[in-house]
Structures are given as C-alpha cells and as structure tokens.
C-alpha cells in the first residue's frame, strides 16, 4: 500500500455532492419537491429544520438509502444509485450492532472492505482512543451510556475513511452537557479529516457552532442557504445570523 502521496490525498479528499431537482418522499406523498443544492468538498454543511421538514430524508437520499422520485443526487458528478462506503452515515441512536463489542463495531466497515485483521484492529483501536473510549473496546453497546454509544458510532463511521460523513441528528437524544462534549469532540476529530460533512439538526445553536454553511429547510423546501463567517471560531457573536435562521424556520 505505497500509493503516491498525491493519489492518497485525492482519494481522501472530501466529496462534492450535488442535488439536482430532487423530489423525495415515501409512498404517494412527496415530502420535498425540486431541491437544488451544491455541497462543496470538505465543507461542513448543516441542514436545520423543524421535525417533519424532511431533513433526514434528504440525508437518506444522499446516503443512497432512498431513491429520489425525481431528479438526481450526484457524488463527484456521478449519480448516486445506492449506498457506498464513501458516504458514511451516523444515525441518531441505536445503530450500533448490539451483539458486537465496541471494537468489533468499529472494525466492521474495514472488515466489509476486506482490510486484513491486523490492520483493522490497529485502525479500530486508534479510532476508539481518538473518541476517548480507550479501555472500553470489549464492552457491548448495552453497557455504554448514550453519549458513549454515539462516540462509538463516530469512530465507526470515520474508521472507514469515508469522503463524506452524513450525520442524522447524532446528538439529538443526548442531554445538554453530553451534547456539548460531543460537539467539541466532533470538531476536534473533524479538524484532521478532509471529508465533507452534512449534519442534520433541529438545534440552531448546534448548527451555528459547527457549520461553514447553514441550510434552512422549511415546509416548502430550502428556505435559504447562509454562510457562517469565521466558522467554528469561539466567542463570536452570531446573534444576527441566529435571528435570521429562526425567522426563516
């Protein structure tokens, strides 16, 4: 595995994602119609919207778990026809396989990709340590708290070195204090990756804390797309932007 550095950089670089006239829904009813959105490689894009606005549905379409009723989703210019390890997903809760230990959950994407045992063990251990769970490798998900389980999910999604990470309200089920910790951990971990991040939340403050750009999704589709100046810099007053988003919701 001695690929030239240039190629390695290209492979690891974030994915460009594009939604072209996408219409989404389950059964006969469309949840969202004619969505158009460009997501730049490596950016952190946060989709904010009230529950029922279809923000998770958009994420499922990007993941390839849901086929659009019309239009198309493009990843690096190629139409998405199904899930791919390039686009990892972090779910709200309970997406860990309960019969696998922490270690074996984190190893799973590597195992599916056919990474040899020794390598995937090393990679899994380093990711588990990275999310602060060293020493918990052999625990089962039911022996972990909600926050710890989401740490494992984060490690699991990143262990597969995806080019995009799709996060579906990953901290929505956590208490306020744990959520704050997880947000700091996420920023810390994402600093080292070039992956594109699409993060879905209903929490405006969470959106402003993480995002390069915020997409406000209302009942009728995309309300507006706002760039966050000096993203992820602490102690910047974002009251104006916050008011703007709440107004759009």
């Amino acid at each position: 595995m001695s690929a030239p550095a240039a190629e390695a950089a290209r492979v690891d670089a974030g994915l460009a994602i594009r939604l072209e006239g996408v219409s989404l829904g389950y059964g006969p009813h469309a949840v969202l119609d004619d969505l158009n959105l460009d997501i730049a490689p490596g950016e952190i894009l946060v989709i904010v919207g009230p529950s029922g606005s279809g923000k998770s549905t958009v994420l499922r379409a990007i993941a390839g778990l849901l086929t659009p009723r019309a239009g198309r989703v493009l990843a690096e210019g190629v139409p998405v026809t199904g899930p791919s390890p390039d686009r990892a997903m972090v779910f709200q809760d309970d997406a860990l396989l309960p019969w696998r230990t922490v270690r074996r959950n984190v190893e799973l994407p590597l195992r599916i990709r056919g990474v040899p045992k020794r390598e995937r063990r090393t990679a899994a251990e380093s990711w588990i340590a990275r999310v602060g769970l060293a020493g918990c490798e052999d625990r089962l998900p039911r022996e972990l708290s909600g926050g710890m389980r989401q740490r494992v999910q984060l490690a699991r999604s990143l262990a597969g070195t995806p080019r995009a990470v799709l996060m579906d309200e990953p901290f929505g089920a956590l208490d306020a204090q744990t959520r704050g910790e997880m947000q700091r951990l996420l920023l810390d971990v994402l600093r080292d990756t070039l992956a594109t991040v699409v993060f879905v939340t209903h929490d405006v403050d969470e959106a402003l804390l993480l995002a390069d750009r915020v997409v406000v999704l209302g009942r009728g589709g995309i309300g507006c797309v706002l760039s966050v100046p000096d993203p992820r810099t602490p102690d910047i007053d974002r009251a104006g932007l916050r008011a703007r988003i709440i107004e759009e919701l």
Partner: peptide
C-alpha cells in the same frame, strides 16, 4: 436501522445477512 448502517458501510446482501439478519 442496523441494515441501513451496514449498507452505508458498503455492505452487500451477504454482509447484511451475516452481520445483521442472522445475529
């Protein structure tokens, strides 16, 4: 949910069967 998780890791039918359905 478990099946979705394995599929977004690039797992195919056999992976879903072995890692999700059977256990």
């Amino acid at each position: 949910l478990w099946e979705d998780a394995v599929r977004t890791m690039g797992g195919g039918r056999a992976h879903v069967l072995w890692n999700v359905v059977l256990p």
